[in-house]
């Protein structure tokens, strides 16, 4: 949780730059027609950005296993709702 050290500041700036770069990639890719893959690419980039925010800005990187558990378990439920809904909408 060393908010102020030079090393931490450098990390934050690097993460910020990565987030800006990934945003530019998201916007650029939206102009290329990849069919269904457009959604997949957009979601992958968004997930990468969210992971960067959680790991560095929200300090998940240095947390203990309990906090990691609470961060990861909701993702399981997100996958559940996506899977359960797709089983219906894609196979009707």
């Amino acid at each position: 949780m060393n908010h102020g050290t030079t090393g931490a500041r450098r990390t934050y700036i690097a993460v910020y730059a990565a987030l800006v770069a990934l945003t530019i990639v998201t916007v650029s890719v939206s102009y290329v027609d990849l069919g269904m893959m457009n959604v997949v690419v957009a979601l992958l980039i968004a997930s990468a950005k969210a992971s960067l925010v959680a790991l560095f800005f929200m300090h998940l990187k240095g947390e203990n296993r309990l906090v990691w558990g609470f961060a990861l378990v909701p993702i399981l439920f997100l996958l559940l709702i996506i899977f359960g809904t797709l089983v219906d909408t894609q196979l009707r």
Partner: peptide, 21 residues
């Protein structure tokens, strides 16, 4: 969390989803 679809058996869900839920 795995059973919500049982409220929708008559809502024209896919047969596979019906069976799973």
């Amino acid at each position: 969390f795995l059973v919500w679809g049982h409220h929708m058996f008559t809502s024209a869900m896919s047969p596979l989803a019906n069976a799973i839920f």
